[in-house]
Nucleic acid binder design. Structure first.
Lengths: 130, 130, 130, 130
DNA sequence: GTGGTCTAGACCACA
DNA sequence: GTGGTCTAGACCACG
């Protein structure tokens, strides 16, 4: 799986990492039970600090995406967290300002839904490709 | 228009402010040309610092939502910025990680689209209510 | 002489006023010894506060462009201030940051000089027209 | 690069800062990709407040002169913004009142152009010197 | 009265 | 160590 880091972005590096790993899990590029690269190797591959990779992995563990396996290292959880009420609440909180902005920029409801659909399709197909 | 600030949230105060004001504009609760409360009055109403409100207003000005009118204070722009390619790119960048997460949490495409629709409806109706 | 005020501009109203009156004097549209409109009439014409017009006139007097005549009101000075060393120093201070910016924006020396020439021509011809 | 702040000037401190940094970039004294001093070190060097420096840096970022690099701090942009129509319009707006004033002070067109040329030369040579 | 600027000092997120 | 955020309180320019 390819991970790309943008040093100029105002998105924190560890967030970029977690986002892309989560997308990998979503697409199936990273299978359940599969091991992630070691902190050391990933950090040197990306040319970033070990602490940063570590923080990303900790965040993923915290949110239930991965677990620390004694010998295999960091592996993708077999049973991913199911969406509950709290998750939906927090999801709405994230989506709401995006929709507000879109309305102000004259993006129609249909256009936004279509964008979502295309991203869904894109993520699913990227998994098969890998 | 009611504005609520959550001091516990990890979302910066000035971002909470801008988000809610943008939602107000989107819903129509804040009409084009309407004046926003003064920096000082809003800050004392919310019990936060003047500079925090100022930063929110500056950000809104910067993104083209309001203009600083010399006499009337801060007013909503008459012509809001239209979505262009750059906007769509940045929009996709925001939506993509949300969708990845949703997939991992077993939220179906339909469920997410439905959520979007309901938020759209909610924002539109909140404007009429006010 | 037509004066146009832009309420949205971040340039203070009284500065817009003084600038345009100075341009009027430079172009000859306002002759030496000619009277400016009264504070009251100008402010009501432009729909701005009397204080603002007053401040503009005071600034003009302060810089030697006009004098307060007992009966004619505010009139253009017959002998305008001559450029001295202090003026040149202050002139350079204003021009320097403009040139720095221009260089960074890849505006050639010739392009900037040409712009200056065209503005000179424009101001001179606008005087004849009036 | 030497930066001098004039506390007496009516030009805001952060504007003085941005102007001098832009001149540094224009002259080449600050190379593309070069790092600027940290907010804190510069502020303590100049004896001014951290936030003032911060505001200057933010303005420079906003106008495309620098980018905030997560690790290196603030660095000069590699590709500076190119002048477009909007820039020329705003440039003319800045130059016009200066020329009006100059005419009133009996500064000839040639004298002003000569001043511009000498500033151009001065900025270019100051870069080599450093 | 408005926003704009500056100061001083604090805590946190990031790398 | 960096910049980002928030607070508190001051003065000034503007209209």
């Amino acid at each position: 799986m390819m991970i790309k880091i943008n040093l100029q972005s105002d998105v924190p590096l560890y967030t970029q990492l977690t986002n892309q790993i989560i997308e990998g899990i979503a697409s199936g590029a990273l299978a359940r039970g599969e091991a992630l690269p070691s902190v050391r190797s990933l950090s040197s591959d990306l040319g970033i600090n070990m602490h940063t990779v570590n923080k990303a992995y900790s965040a993923l563990k915290q949110e239930g995406y991965v677990e620390i396996h004694r010998q295999k290292g960091v592996v993708v959880q077999n049973s991913l967290p199911e969406a509950d009420d709290a998750y939906y609440r927090q999801l709405e909180e994230k989506v709401r300002p995006i929709i507000s902005e879109s309305i102000c920029h004259n993006v129609s409801e249909d256009a936004l839904l279509e964008l979502c659909r295309s991203i869904f399709k894109q993520i699913r197909s990227s998994g098969k490709a890998t």
